[in-house]
Amino acid sequence: MIDHMSALFTLGNMQFLLRGAGMTLLLTMIGCTAGLFGGFLLAYARGSKGTLTAPLRWGATAFVEIFRRIPFLVTLFLVLYTAQMIVPRAPLFWVAVVSICLLCSAYMAEIVRSGMESVPAPQIEAAEVMNFSRWRITWMIVLPQAWKVILPSAVSYMVMFVKDTALASQAGVFELMFAGKALANRGLDPFLVFATVLFAYFVISWPLARFGRWLEAQLARRTHEGDRR
């Protein structure tokens, strides 16, 4: 056991795992940031009225419904093979980034939408009757109230999503899980390797989960910015 441990816990191996963990964190951050923007655009498109924007509305709805329902692994391979058709040597990192953005946007779209729907309808109708444009209603009235509902859900989704990024290793993307598999393949004790990987996932997601809960408590306590202005 001691031998196994000293074989695994070398500076080189730890740096290797750390690079994997860094990539996991990076993929999570990119996914959730892009997802928040993409999700907003999708939610905005889905909420449009009128016949002219109908194709946009249906397109956004189809996007959200499809990518929320198919397994992430399927999305990943879909993007991988599509990318390879267009660019023969498509870099795997970007394949992972694109897949992750697709998935995150679809999920965040629902989080953003339910956040925007939490704003009482009469406020929106009042603005409509006062000749506010839809964009102005969203920007000046809905989002300033909805983000308090959106943010905690977005963070808790992010915590879940950290784990989903492990699937990217299936497409050969270098991240934490991939680093673990590589070490195990090198003949290091798989139990120890994956226990270390598990610990690393925990170290990434636990503070994030705590941050989410803290944020929720803060936002619940603070009803509006006016108190501190």
């Binding site: 406020q123 009042a126 603005a127 009757v129 000749n131 000046m140 109230q145 006016g226």
Partner: peptide
């Protein structure tokens, strides 16, 4: 409709005010 709404106002039962504004 815009023209009409420049001349008409409505007040509802509740939640009229924008909660994020003074």
């Amino acid at each position: 409709l815009r023209g009409l709404r420049d001349h008409a106002a409505i007040v509802f039962q509740q939640y009229n005010l924008f909660q994020n504004m003074s």
